[in-house]
């Protein structure tokens, strides 16, 4: 079925559910094409397992084009594997060599409990957004879109922060399992836009409080998140969030 010539050994984390313990299990794959994506290589593995009557490896994925943020594999010690600025689904087998051994684990963090095999529960991210990652504008309340000009540089910066796909690689790679990059990206996007100003200091306080409540670790500025983020979200967002947090706590009179 596959057409290539790479032979690989996979060590894949298998875990039945969040109540059982898991372990790495070895699999051999042959004839893998370098043009396959990493997930297509897993499709081949799963097809093999099903044909042998075993249960396939469960992993999260959907768009397979690097935008939905669903795929999430920790490959050879790095989230989304060896290439910078790509998601697992965009990683191709040409980034590996014939004969390689590849270790694949789920994201690991207390706030991202394993659901099954390589699938984890990232709903903590949604709850952080629900705590304040929005502008409170009901449908129908908007003025004309061009009434409020926004300097291009600012709009572009907001867009860059908004490019976060919520994959959680930042948490996965951080030695402290901190979610600061994700949270700061949202806070920055809205803090950079005039529409985001009215709630700016409420937002940073409530989102940070929710982030802490979810059990993420504390940032120690190692910068691993920025290096591994598939969308190149910048550490500057964290600095901006810190600054806003300080303003919110020490200058703004509004407490949340």
């Amino acid at each position: 079925m596959s057409t290539g010539n790479m032979n690989l050994t996979l060590k894949v984390w298998r875990q039945k559910n969040n109540k059982t313990k898991g372990a790495l299990v070895d699999y051999k794959l042959t004839d893998i094409s370098p043009d396959m994506s990493f997930l297509e290589m897993f499709d081949v593995l799963n097809e093999q397992l099903i044909n042998k009557g075993e249960e396939p490896v469960v992993f999260d994925h959907d768009c397979r084009e690097g935008i939905c943020g669903m795929c999430s594999m920790f490959i050879n010690g790095r989230p989304h594997g060896p290439k910078d600025l790509v998601t697992t689904c965009q990683l191709h087998m040409r980034s590996f060599k014939d004969g390689d051994t590849i270790v694949v684990e789920p994201w690991r963090a207390a706030a991202f409990p394993v659901v099954k095999d390589l699938t984890v529960d990232r709903s903590a991210f949604d709850r952080i957004i629900a705590a304040g990652g929005f502008i409170s504008v009901n449908t129908g309340n908007a003025q004309d879109a061009n009434n409020l000009p926004i300097p291009k540089m600012q709009a572009d910066a907001a867009f860059e922060a908004a490019a976060c796909i919520g994959c959680g690689a930042c948490v996965a790679t951080c030695k402290n399992a901190s979610a600061m990059l994700f949270v700061s990206a949202k806070i920055s996007q809205l803090a950079l836009l005039p529409q985001g100003q009215p709630e700016r200091y409420r937002r940073v306080q409530s989102m940070v409080a929710q982030m802490d409540a979810e059990g993420f670790g504390n940032c120690t500025n190692t910068g691993a998140c920025e290096a591994e983020c598939p969308k190149g979200i910048s550490l500057e967002n964290i600095a901006r969030m810190n600054r806003d947090f300080a303003s919110a706590k020490f200058i703004s009179e509004e407490t949340v």
Binding site: A145, P149, D156, F159, G196
Partner: peptide
């Protein structure tokens, strides 16, 4: 477009 911009959707400028 009005609604989205009000929500903070960073459309190109």
């Amino acid at each position: 477009i009005d609604q989205c911009v009000a929500q903070g959707v960073p459309l190109a400028r």
